[in-house]
Design a binder for these strands. Structure first.
Lengths: 204, 204
DNA sequence: AATAACCGCGACGTATATGTTGCAAGTAGA
DNA sequence: TCTACTTGCAACATATACGTCGCGGTTATT
């Protein structure tokens, strides 16, 4: 009868200060390494973190646990970025800029953890992202009612394009500061690239 | 002295008709399976194709070879889709619609193979994609000169947003026909979502 | 200073994916 | 019909990633 290798469950007792630091170091290293190669191994993460592989396993029972912790952490920072922009309390257009800038700031540093697809719908990260998505649509609706968006704008499509623009902005080579990028994103979202007299060009 | 497992090199002699069919079946199955799960195993691909795993290995020496073939095939279809729209010979706006519709048609069926990142810059697929990218910028430049795009449009940023919109459009749940989606994409690209009187809203 | 926690290291066990080989049975095509 | 190609199957070899365990040395905390 083979003894099955079951992951050792991680006790949740308070960590010593240095251990706490190690955890953060590992998570940051994981983000870096996995952003470059999502299939990276535990060994590579450990190496990037400057610790032994066994230490990683000491802190995170399984690979899944590490990934979950990482995405959870990023999600919380994401939520924090949105919240601190007070998207429900400021004029829609201002909020749009503010939220965009804040989100860009965190997303550039957490590209892997933020783009990870959420298989299990019950994970903390999935819940947070879903909530934020709802708030995003709310903001867009307010923008539409305020006349910032066209009355016939499809909010769901708008949101997806908005997300895509943010994603694309994080890949900018000359990553200027978040505010400049945010301006670029919102500007593109609202105006697109057509010339104001664009419609006439069809008949040219 | 351990005998190292080196992939058996695939002879490139003409295949019998049924074998040719098998190859296509495998590639199509690989696309389906890998689109759902990029880390899918050879076994899963074989199962989806309705063949034995060994048969897959008979046709594709290594996993890499299969992936390369897949991306190569998709890239050729991509190029074909662009070419058949004659983007250099028709008015920019028309070409934009036409290219978009054609590309959407193939991209919906080849989402995995088209999004695969190209590590080795010397692969056929990478070359094709690079060429198409150049032609895309050319088209956008023509559009700008024709007054379809704003004179100050950043062509590289425009192209990336264009790509992102196409990508997003392929994920539409109610995947209407390619023409309708193309209209949506080009419309969004040119006009964005802001109301024409949008600028005024800032002062509201 | 004493204690408990932490870490590196080496070793081990396990699971799984990849790739190979040989053979028997079936089938396309001349 | 005959032949060469093709396929499924079972078995094998190998590499690699994951996870565990124990020990000795170090460090934080009291």
């Amino acid at each position: 009868m083979a003894t099955v290798n079951q992951p050792r469950q991680q006790t949740k007792r308070p960590l010593r200060a240095d251990a706490e630091r190690t955890v953060r170091t590992i998570l940051e290293a994981a983000e870096r390494v996995l952003a470059a190669n999502p299939a990276a191994t535990m060994e590579q993460v450990a190496e990037a973190a400057g610790v032994a592989r066994t230490t990683v396993h000491r802190r995170f029972a399984t690979r899944e646990a590490l990934l979950d912790e990482l995405t959870g952490w990023a999600a919380r920072q994401f939520a924090e970025a949105v919240d601190s922009a007070r998207p429900d309390a400021t004029p829609p257009l201002v909020a749009l800029y503010q939220v965009t800038a804040n989100v860009l700031r965190v997303k550039t540093s957490w590209s892997f953890a933020m783009n990870r697809t959420f298989d299990e719908a019950h994970s903390e990260a999935a819940r947070i992202h879903a909530e934020i998505q709802v708030r995003c649509v709310q903001l867009l609706r307010r923008a539409r009612e305020a006349g910032v968006l066209r009355p016939d704008a499809d909010l769901d499509w708008t949101r997806r394009v908005y997300y895509a623009l943010i994603h694309e902005a994080t890949a900018e080579t000359d990553d200027g500061d978040a505010d400049a990028l945010a301006t670029k994103v919102v500007d593109t979202l609202l105006r697109g690239f057509g010339s104001p007299a664009g419609a006439a060009a069809v008949h040219a």
